[in-house]
Design a protein around this nucleic acid. Sequence first.
DNA 1: ATGTCTTTACTTGTATGGAAGTATGGCATA
DNA 2: TATGCCATACTTCCATACAAGTAAAGACAT
Lengths: 225, 225
Amino acid sequence: MDIARITIAPSTASQVHDWLRKRVQRGDLPPGMRISETEVASAIGISRQPVREAFIRLASDGLAEVRPQRGTYISRISVSAVLSARFIREAVEADLARAVAKARPGDLLDRMGDEIAAQHRADKAGSVEDFIDSDDRFHHLLAQAAGQDAVWADLERLKAQMNRLRHLSMRAFDRSFTIGQHRQILDALRHGDADAAEAAMRTHLRQMLAEVPQMAAAQPDYFTD
Amino acid sequence: MDIARITIAPSTASQVHDWLRKRVQRGDLPPGMRISETEVASAIGISRQPVREAFIRLASDGLAEVRPQRGTYISRISVSAVLSARFIREAVEADLARAVAKARPGDLLDRMGDEIAAQHRADKAGSVEDFIDSDDRFHHLLAQAAGQDAVWADLERLKAQMNRLRHLSMRAFDRSFTIGQHRQILDALRHGDADAAEAAMRTHLRQMLAEVPQMAAAQPDYFTD
DNA sequence: ATGTCTTTACTTGTATGGAAGTATGGCATA
DNA sequence: TATGCCATACTTCCATACAAGTAAAGACAT
């Protein structure tokens, strides 16, 4: 028998936190912007306390910075933090690719192929959001295929800063190029060629090395470090 | 000229947070223990609010779990989270080892050697704390030697769960064995042998694969998953 | 024009009271 | 003995008031 699924109503503070986090990641609240407990509270129609606690959580996510008695600001995107997260991603996903190339789980590889098709559709439709979502699912499926689902959850935390940057860069850079790299990775995985899969993955994730400084130079007041 | 170092007095909430975090990591507050805003507040002699905010931050660290209207509990150690962090560490430090083997920065390699000596002393003196601290510095120096200092900061977050486990396992397992593995890694780095360095590092970090289930079986009510 | 002081309007931090939900033990009842 | 109800004593959550610090504008003397 299934265990009954009990869901409790999420607290006001956590709802505000979710709302703010999404808005920051989508770039709706730009880096450097000042936000105020009082303003947000009165805008929503609640007291300061839940908003304040949402700010604390946002700061733990690295998305905001609370300066005592001065104000709270949306974090600027740290170039070194992004590069550090990129380094970690390359190392981890290279190992994941090797593991998947050895196991070759057919169903999950098929689903990765479906995502590539979805990315193609999103590109033609010009939907940046859909593209990014499918991109995430593609890499998530890789982790699942390696039997390391929990690893993806950890990477998600590290990707917080990268995600904001992606909403900028996806508009500026060539998406069909990304799709081609995904195809190369999947081909190598299907053939069980671990070396080729690792190489393709590393090439794919090193793409960002060139893009990040370019983005930072284009909008310097959104970045730091 | 140096920039003047301005330090502001940390808020009560953040002081409580630091205090609790250290106590959790050292195992002073055992997994599963119940903690209460009111109790902690009156024990310290402050109001509930700063304590409450410290709990929120502790939950963001994954070290506590706030159950609305029920109570707040020190998180049990998630076996899958530990294994996931271990997987990431192996992948990342393998790449770091390769990079260091190519660069071979003499001064930092010397300092890594100093740490091995410190570990030997701590082992003879029977000081688990000193051993763990030096162990951390050894791996931190590896990241610095690879020019990826920021990577270590990210790994620190992931290691939160691992650290608690280490305070248990270091008492149970052979530390001289660990020191020998550190020597193998450093030797390979000094010789500039990237393949050997990576292999030694992976072997070293895979040690945990055997230990974790053993620890979990020994004290099942400290673990979950 | 420039520098200094004061006022004033903000900001976040802390304390406290009460609201709402939960667990538990006692007790009446079948 | 077993079951259902209920009072009670908790818990976290939210609202409110006040405290303490910051910053910027303006008055005013130099």
